[in-house]
Every structure is written in structure tokens, then in C-alpha cells.
Write a protein that binds this DNA or RNA. Structure first.
Lengths: 203, 203
DNA sequence: AAAGTAGATTAACGGTGTTAAGTTGTACGT
DNA sequence: ACGTACAACTTAACACCGTTAATCTACTTT
């Protein structure tokens, strides 16, 4: 009927997602909200996963734009990394429902979503990797495999967001204080340093 | 009929949880697996959340025992912190389904579980906090609020586990290599250091 | 023997994702 | 102009889900 029902359904789904959260989002509700029968969705999406993945892809794109813009004004890899971290955290709290489907959903069982769609997700990680590699080149960061270190930083940021969104962080801890501590941990964890105590076996 | 049906149901639930994963765990399945009707569960648990929370509490207890034993042989706060981190990561991969309900479940909507039950969860965090406070006392760690820093470290560990369990980590990254990188990040992120570049505005 | 009760069950409600079959309207070839 | 083909959409149905209300059963207490 309408110009592009697929587009309408996606927009409706996104609206409901933001309004009521992922746990209350159902195919039937999306359909009735859009004024169609539930089975209409299956003319445009293989299943619920497929629909969600499309939203995820859009979310990855948004995140990429927000991350790309972040380190522009900062100078030096450490400051740029800090800016990236803050941008990631900001995106997560500003788009909590998006974040939930993007990262907090176990890509269910076998139905892992097509590798082609991973590309947009990976681009975000590459922003971190490149900044880390820069910092290693300039001697600001300790040596290591940038891609692995980027994944570590991502883990830190994701964990922070995930615990926050799940309401698991102790209520006495101020959110912004925690975020600041996390960013500090990220940057100083990678910084090239001269240990005060050069002993202490780590591994 | 049996000695303690509540106990039987919990054991059945835990077995199914490990066998088939949380997403396939239903009240009806637990009941039929145990040889009872679905509604019997409601004689012993207020609802599904209540049952799950009981398992969560048991999981928290297990985690505490594993964490408590970890730093025993290590000497010095940094090495002890590293041991705690490794113990946490080990627990998570060895008890993936447990971990999922313990930390990866949004304590759903209003139904946050009673603060009394949070106590066991908090004890685990306090192990990290105390080790960090120790390290600050001995000058091995930089100053800061130990409870906040402990939460940061926890975020790092949780993020690592969550991404791993959700299958979100790039397949080219070896799990143990990532874990090692994460532990390094945790310890060196807290270490008292003398920066090679004492400039670089962070905030 | 009668009454009460704890433990378990069946039936049912409203919800979910999804598939199969049926309906409707419009465009097109003849 | 008519019949056909096809696309868009709907209704009916299946097999699940968590949960409540009402019922049954067997045993204990009086």
C-alpha cells in the first residue's frame, strides 16, 4: 500500500524499541502499530532476527559517525583515545535501546548474522585500533598488538555500559565518576610507562 | 512427594540451563523434566524471576569461593589483582550459562532482585576493592577511590566475558591472548607510574 | 467418621514467533 | 473487454510461553 512498507515497519520498530524497550518489542505489536497484520512483516523480513539485525546495522552506522567525529579536535593519541572512549559511552547512554540490540543480544544460537553485516561493526573497532597504533608509533603507548588491545579497550567500554544499563552498578557510584575512572583506566593502561616497581611478576 | 521438591526443581533447572542454555529454559520444561506439572513450580517459587534469582545467588557463592582462593599464592597487590582477574575470567568460561543469568540478564524492569540478595554479589566486588586498596597503601597503585576503581576493573572483566559469550569478538583473536591482554590492561592501568610524556591533557 | 489441609493437577487466559492457505485488487496479454 | 497472473495482504492455525483460578487427592487431626 504505502510507498515502502519495509521502511515504515523499520521506523515503527525503532520507535517502539525506544519507547518501550527491547523486551516489550514484538512482531505483532510492530504490525498493529503500523496498521498491518502480523504476518505482513514476513513479506519484508525473514524473521524477527532479520528485522532486528537491520536496525543493528543502522545503529552501527550511527555509532561510527559519532566515533569518527570524536577525536577530531584532540591532539595526540592518548587524548584521541580518551575522546573515542567518551564518545562510545555517550552513544550508549543516549541510545540505550539501540545499544541493547547492538551488543547485548546473544546473536542467537546458530543465527549469527551474516559476516557481511559485521563489516560495519568492525569499522568501529578499527577506529580504536588505528588510534592505538598511532600511539605506539609515537612512543606514547606500550608495544602490543593494536587489534587485540583495541578489543580490550572495547571490552572495558562495553562492560561499563552493559553493567550500567542492566542496573548492576552499585547505586552509591556516580555514573560520570565511573565513566571518568574507566577512561583513565583505558588510557593509562596503554601508556608507555616506567614502573616504580620494576619487579612483580605479572604472568 | 519427594524430600524437597524445591531443591529438585532447582537442580533440574540448573542442569537444563547448562545443557540447553538460558534461552531454551522454560518453567514448563523444568517441570516436565522433573516429572511434575508446570504449575507445581509456583508452589515453591513466586515466578520465573524468583527461581532464576535463587540460582544466581548460588552462582555468586561459587564465584566468591573461586575468587577467594585465587590470590592466596600470589604476593604483592599487582600479582594478586592479576590472579583475581584470571580467576574471574576462568569462572565465566567454565560456567557460561551461570554467568549469563548472573550478569547478562537485565534485572527485569521493576523486578530488581531484593537488596538482601545483592550482598553476595557485592562481596565479590569487595575482593577487588580490598586488593586495590592494599596496592595503594603499598604505593604500587596510583591513588583513587578503590570502590570505583574496582568497579572499573569489574567492567573490564565483564565486558570481556560478555562479548566473548555473545560471540562478538573477532574470530581471528585468540581467546587466551585477549584474556592476557585484558589482565595486563587491568594491572598496568592501576599501576603507579612515571609517565614518559608527562603532558597530554586527559580530561 | 468428619473436617481440614498440604500438595499436586487440569483448564484456561493472553501473549509470543511463525507457517500455510485464502482473499483481494491491479496490471497485462490477447 | 475479458481472463489470467501475480503481488500484497489477511485469516486461521500451530506450538510454544508465564501465570492464575479452580479442582482433585490423599493424609492428618479431631
Amino acid at each position: 500500500m504505502e510507498a515502502d512498507l519495509r521502511r515504515i515497519l523499520l521506523d515503527t520498530a525503532r520507535r517502539l524499541l525506544v519507547q518501550e524497550g527491547y523486551s516489550r518489542l514484538s512482531m505483532r505489536k510492530i504490525a498493529s502499530e503500523a496498521g498491518y497484520s502480523a504476518t505482513s512483516l514476513y513479506l519484508h523480513f525473514a524473521n524477527k532476527d532479520d528485522l532486528i539485525h537491520t536496525l543493528v546495522e543502522e545503529g552501527m552506522e550511527r555509532l561510527f559517525q559519532q566515533l569518527s567525529a570524536a577525536p577530531a579536535e584532540a591532539s595526540g593519541a592518548p587524548a584521541q583515545l580518551a575522546a573515542l572512549c567518551r564518545a562510545y559511552l555517550s552513544f550508549a547512554v543516549d541510545n540505550a535501546e539501540y545499544y541493547e540490540i547492538m551488543f547485548m543480544q546473544r546473536s542467537d544460537e546458530l543465527a549469527r548474522f551474516p559476516t557481511e553485516k559485521y563489516r560495519k561493526a568492525r569499522r568501529n573497532l578499527e577506529l580504536f585500533r588505528d588510534t592505538i597504533a598511532d600511539g605506539q608509533g609515537s612512543g606514547a603507548f606500550q608495544p602490543g598488538v593494536p587489534f587485540v588491545q583495541a578489543t580490550s579497550i572495547w571490552s572495558l567500554l562495553h562492560g561499563t555500559v552493559a553493567l550500567h544499563l542492566a542496573g548492576r552498578v552499585d547505586a552509591r557510584i556516580d555514573r560520570d565518576a565511573l565513566f571518568a575512572s574507566v577512561v583513565t583506566l583505558a588510557v593509562s593502561g596503554l601508556r608507555a610507562t616506567r614502573q616504580l616497581e620494576p619487579n612483580a611478576p605479572l604472568s
